[in-house]
Design a protein around this nucleic acid. Structure first.
Lengths: 219, 219
DNA sequence: TCCCCGCTTAGGGTTTACCCTAACTCATTT
DNA sequence: AAATGAGTTAGGGTAAACCCTAAGCGGGGA
């Protein structure tokens, strides 16, 4: 990799590609050997051209950067792809991490950071813009507390039913639960029957799966 | 919050607390109104002292920073906590995000970044060190593909057993499974019995919970 | 080649789960 | 005061789950 880095640009905006090409080549970051206007065009040129690095936009017609990256990595696992994206609210940024891309920078980065990102990725290390990292972390953080909140279903069950449901989800038998809450086996069975009815489950396994899927219990 | 920021330091190393206190007060970031050597001591002083900000270490004896943060936030949801940690491999950094802490910085940060972090958190925004963000993202990225791989337990079960296990985890009864795979009810029951034995589960619910916890099935 | 062992298959018998019904309590309504 | 309705309690009977035993099949080793 001591020779010039061979780069393919993938972006649906010609102007952006031209600007990037000029920036990359005047700053000596590498040489742009090809350009593609979407993921499909890029995948067709991947085999013959064998680039060192791909700068890939995410929002593109026909095939976006996420899908194109996944398919390209499936073909060439060692290929280094640096995603380039705008920071808006429409994307699921956490998804970027698992595409196989070695990094992701914002379109708003300066040439210094872009050069840094390219060098880092070429070295085989990953590079993600700090702003992007922060956004992913915050999104990630917001999801969890939301899922910790009591879902709608919780209102549909009585206290006893929830108590029994929790024991059932720990794997206890009805007899064991009856002993724990000092009630007859038949009573606990009745509570479970109510739970089955309300959750439209056909048996205890379905009930437990229902509770897990609706996050009524912690496992 | 226009007056001086009241800060509690929580760290088991006296020297670190003294250094931090000196740094905070000479740089005018706030005033350290109390110090605690672990999470328990801190929680006892939280109610009477009512701090604006808590600088909390993670690795501490008796009660660590993660648990202390969760308990403190449960008591005072608006409390601003800035975690301070070393960047090593033993921590599950992704866990930090859901503690309720408003931020996390590394012990290696300079006074400029610390001041920045404190001001950001006091404003009500979150602040996480870039190095830490990067580590979390990388861990997060590594986990996903790993969890898609077949776990160790998978080798312990035969093909038929795995087939039956998957149906059981969908909530099907033994009779339904027997019909699906064109075998006698007794045969399917025998497979389930083997599964129960191998997973040391006492009943089907426990077996399903075992499979879910060990990621043997997708739910 | 024969033996051994694990997988798959299945039956008999006991325990538990599941369904239907129903009494009692208590808060709310008429 | 009587009626209503939901929650908790529990029994009786049937279906399913669960445990023990065992035969047939097929691959690997003495």
């Amino acid at each position: 990799m001591s020779s010039t880095t061979k780069i393919i640009l993938v972006d649906d905006h010609l102007l952006f590609r031209e600007g990037m090409k000029l920036l990359i080549e005047t700053e000596g970051m590498g040489v742009v050997i090809a350009e593609a206007s979407n993921g499909k065009v890029f995948l067709d040129m991947l085999e013959p051209l064998d680039p060192d690095l791909v700068l890939m936009d995410i929002e593109m017609p026909d095939m976006g950067g996420i899908e194109a990256t996944e398919k390209a990595i499936a073909l060439k696992p060692a290929l280094k792809i640096l995603l380039v994206t705008m920071l808006d609210t429409s994307n699921d940024y956490a998804k970027l991490i698992n595409t196989g891309a070695m990094g992701c920078v914002l379109k708003s980065v300066g040439k210094q950071e872009l050069e840094n990102a390219i060098k880092t990725v070429i070295k085989g290390e990953s590079y993600f813009s700090n702003e992007l990292l922060r956004k992913i972390i915050l999104d990630f953080g917001k999801q969890k507390p939301a899922s910790n909140e009591t879902p709608d279903f919780a209102n549909e069950f009585t206290e006893r039913e929830i108590e029994v449901l929790n024991f059932l989800c720990e794997g206890l038998s009805v007899a064991e639960i009856a002993k724990k809450i000092n009630r007859s086996v038949k009573t606990v069975e009745a509570h479970r029957a109510k739970l089955l009815q309300k959750s439209e489950a056909r048996n205890t396994v379905n009930l437990v799966l229902f509770a897990i899927k609706n996050k009524l219990v912690k496992i």
